[in-house]
């Protein structure tokens, strides 16, 4: 059972960092950005590129995150703003197209083989019977730290108040003299930056490949939707809950129900997120905490 805990902490942290960004963009622009998870892939590759150029891991990671954040703003201004003018449907298809373009470009530049960050191979530390590597401990701490920081910023700074105002009512925010364009820029930078951190952490823990982000797409959407779109706390809680469910489903001996001992094929793990997503959308589209996503 401790294994489940370790598993949940690691995978939940990765999903949470991405789900929070997705929910922020959704809150401010009313738009589901399918390309969001690609920022994680870009983060991983830019760290690979910078360490390859001879920079240290920490510096490369920081620069990589900054570069992805800037790229996100550029993409928003050059692309998404235009797409959004043609309606949310076109924007959604467009973000899917952008995701494909980003993946294809990375394949063109880096090939389809995975890349590694120069981190030493470490033996896991025994934690009550489950093994956790030092890099995984760092991963969880960094994620939790950043999530706490984000919560504080949104709660207590004027920037946070502005973001929440725009999210609550864009037109009203305009009237009240807020610079909505600037707020949206910052939201893009924040969410893409967090996604990049998540991608880099995952790259350190395993490897970075073209599909890194895409493999996370549905779990991240599941967490954001289950958490209630626009709700930061909801997204974080849902991310860890989802990771826990994924791990539990595989640990449980279903023999009690179907007879004998029967463990689910590990291959079905991603199905947990998909199923949760579909059930949630069918029966409680407003999420655990947050606004309805019903039409109308």
């Amino acid at each position: 059972m401790v294994e489940v805990l370790v598993d949940t902490a690691v995978r939940g942290s990765i999903i949470a960092l991405l789900a929070v960004g997705l929910t922020l963009i959704q809150g401010t622009l009313r738009f589901a950005n399918v390309a969001h998870v690609e920022f994680a892939t870009l983060g991983g590759y830019s760290a690979v590129a910078l360490t390859g150029a001879g920079l240290g891991l920490l510096l490369s990671s920081a620069l990589g995150v900054a570069l992805v954040a800037v790229l996100a703003v550029v993409l928003y201004r050059l692309l998404f703003r235009r797409l959004l003018r043609s309606g949310p449907m076109i924007a959604l298809i467009g973000s899917l197209a952008l995701a494909i373009v980003i993946r294809a470009t990375l394949q063109l530049l880096y090939g389809s083989r995975p890349r590694y960050l120069p981190t030493p191979l470490e033996r896991g530390i025994d934690f009550h019977g489950a093994l956790i590597t030092p890099s995984q401990i760092r991963l969880v701490c960094i994620s939790l730290g950043l999530l706490a920081l984000l919560a504080l910023v949104l709660k207590f700074t004027s920037l946070g108040r502005a973001v929440r105002a725009v999210a609550a009512n864009p037109e009203l925010a305009d009237v009240s003299g807020l610079n909505r364009g600037r707020v949206v820029d910052i939201v893009w930078m924040l969410s893409a930056g967090l996604a990049a951190v998540s991608g880099i952490l995952l790259s350190i823990d395993s490897a970075v490949g073209i599909e890194l982000g895409f493999n996370l797409l549905l779990p991240v959407f599941a967490a954001a939707i289950v958490g209630g779109l626009g709700s930061i706390a909801g997204a974080v809680i849902a991310a860890y809950a989802l990771a826990c469910a994924e791990s539990l489903v595989l640990q449980i001996d279903w023999g009690a129900i179907v007879g004998g001992t029967h463990h689910l094929e590990v291959g079905y793990r991603p199905a947990v997120g998909f199923a949760l997503l579909v059930v949630m959308l069918a029966f409680r589209p407003q999420g655990l905490m947050g606004r309805a996503v019903r039409r109308g």
């Binding site: 590129a49 390859g52 570069l67």
Partner: peptide
């Protein structure tokens, strides 16, 4: 103001693309 931000953003994006492609050349 808007145009300036765009120009600045572009200025930052170019090095990113360059960095990505340079390292790719070296490692292919």
């Amino acid at each position: 103001h808007r145009r300036r931000i765009k120009a600045r953003a572009l200025g930052l994006a170019v090095p990113l693309v360059l960095a990505l492609s340079l390292s790719a050349c070296g490692s292919d």
